[in-house]
Design a protein around this nucleic acid. Structure first.
Ligand SMILES: NC(=O)c1ccc[n+]([C@@H]2O[C@H](COP(=O)([O-])OP(=O)(O)OC[C@H]3O[C@@H](n4cnc5c(N)ncnc54)[C@H](O)[C@@H]3O)[C@@H](O)[C@H]2O)c1
Ligand SMILES: NC(=O)c1ccc[n+]([C@@H]2O[C@H](COP(=O)([O-])OP(=O)(O)OC[C@H]3O[C@@H](n4cnc5c(N)ncnc54)[C@H](O)[C@@H]3O)[C@@H](O)[C@H]2O)c1
Lengths: 216, 216
DNA sequence: GATATGTTGTGAAATAATGCACTTTATGCT
DNA sequence: AGCATAAAGTGCATTATTTCACAACATATC
């Protein structure tokens, strides 16, 4: 629990920096300048320097940033130095894809349990992850000390399932349903709304005259 | 091509309003106030009124907004009054889930063509969508007048495939790969980075003391 | 050691987004 | 018809974010 004065916009960019630093490190690069990094991650170099500066003086003037130590720093900051277990609720179309993918690569997040109501799949193991029935959810979440879940259930049941999750002590939900679920204070929702993303893209294509590249 | 003075932040919220208005309309509701809408979509009521006001006076003082006409207005604004065909590149794990889902519901976006290199699946039809081999991509995109694609190929080939897409005249890419691809001016990229979303969520859980609810 | 070079870290300006609080105006009730 | 009420639309203050541009300083070169 360090400095919580980090702007939201900065916090959202940290994973992007982290990933690219990993790639740089693996390619054997020893140092990187904000300008070079800017090119790769499509964020203005001044923004990068400002972002980094919230965490102190991470670079050396006239030299740039040391890839290894910057990588280590962000690994710690993003809690990627220890494994975080998350659960997946709803192993359907999308849930199955996420389960299969399971954030492999240079990552320290793992789906370690999945839940569903469909008794044709509960009790089985998919991609190494056991699928439990819903009536075991609370028990398993508590036992496995899981605080973060990925929600991929049909939207009509999303609020009901969310309520159960909250009573099970969950603190964060990555919500793929289009429903804006209600939760008490202290529970964080991160919405991923794919239909929105597509509609927004189409909107910009039809309404922005001055062509602009990337977003987010 | 109307007024392009709409703030980005507002534009990103339009699909959220649109979807909720559809739900309201289907439930038979005739009118809605900004306060009531705010509750459902988790956006401050003043922000909603401001957002709407960029498009003119859409409501009636003392009454609220007429659900039907607001819905119609946003349908037009979001180009949901006509069908938009999009293509999917890379029918793997994630691509398959999206193909299967195909944005059904009250939506006017359809994946009408898919592409892959794997000759075990090219030539087949999945969820009603034909999967073409990559050497037919340019031809098909031009012929079907597709301007928007969903990119779900492995990240090592993402830049190469993107270059092909650009030469095929694509104007928008919904990019699910973690790579920040390079495109010329005039092509819009909307990045959806699921690993980022999860890492950001975990970051906030560990670093924000004052509990705050929703995001985005 | 002195000088040239490159790149950070940051003050300050510019831009963007939010939200308060008030004015205005339509509606519904008596 | 008149009055009370509700809620939109908006000026403005506040807050957040980005970007410019430069002084400060580390490193490399001679
Ligand atoms: N599939 C996509 O590509 C896609 C894209 C955008 C949004 N979404 C959203 O993601 C969510 C899931 O979509 P999907 O296509 O995977 O749906 P799906 O129907 O394929 O899968 C839903 C899964 O949830 C399970 N389930 C149903 N009720 C449950 C309950 N009460 N408790 C636990 N599990 C329950 C079902 O058994 C099923 O396995 C939906 O809200 C959808 O709108 C999906
Ligand atoms: N699956 C997920 O849940 C998930 C989550 C986050 C990010 N992603 C990202 O989405 C992308 C796709 O992930 P995935 O899990 O579906 O991968 P995948 O390997 O299952 O699917 C990739 C598909 O692309 C095809 N392909 C390979 N090279 C191609 C080429 N040159 N041209 C056209 N098609 C080609 C493959 O044949 C395969 O069908 C990756 O970049 C991944 O990082 C996936």
């Amino acid at each position: 629990m360090i400095n919580s004065k980090i702007p939201q916009a900065t916090a959202k960019r940290l994973p992007i920096y982290y990933r690219y630093l990993g790639i740089l490190y693996n390619s054997g690069k020893k140092r990187i300048s904000s300008t070079e990094l800017a090119e790769a991650v499509k964020v203005d170099s001044a923004t990068i320097r400002r972002d980094f500066s919230y965490f102190g003086a991470l670079g050396k003037r006239g030299y740039g940033y040391d890839v290894k130590s910057l990588l280590d720093f962000f690994k710690k900051t993003l809690n990627q130095d220890k494994l975080t277990n998350v659960a997946l609720i709803g192993v359907g179309n999308l849930g199955h894809a996420l389960l299969n993918y399971n954030f492999h690569g240079s990552n320290n997040v793992r789906i370690s349990a999945a839940f569903d109501i469909d008794d044709r799949i509960t009790g089985t193991i998919q991609s190494g992850v056991p699928i439990y029935p819903m009536n075991e959810m609370k028990e398993q979440l508590v036992e496995q000390q899981i605080e973060v879940v990925i929600l991929t259930v049909p939207s009509p049941v999303a609020q009901r399932v969310t309520d159960e999750l909250v009573t099970a002590g969950i603190r964060g939900i990555l919500n793929f349903t289009p429903l804006r679920v209600n939760v008490q204070d202290g529970v964080r929702i991160q919405n991923v709304d794919l239909t929105n993303e597509l509609q927004t893209l189409i909107y910009f294509l039809n309404h922005v005259d001055q062509p602009q590249a990337s977003t987010k």
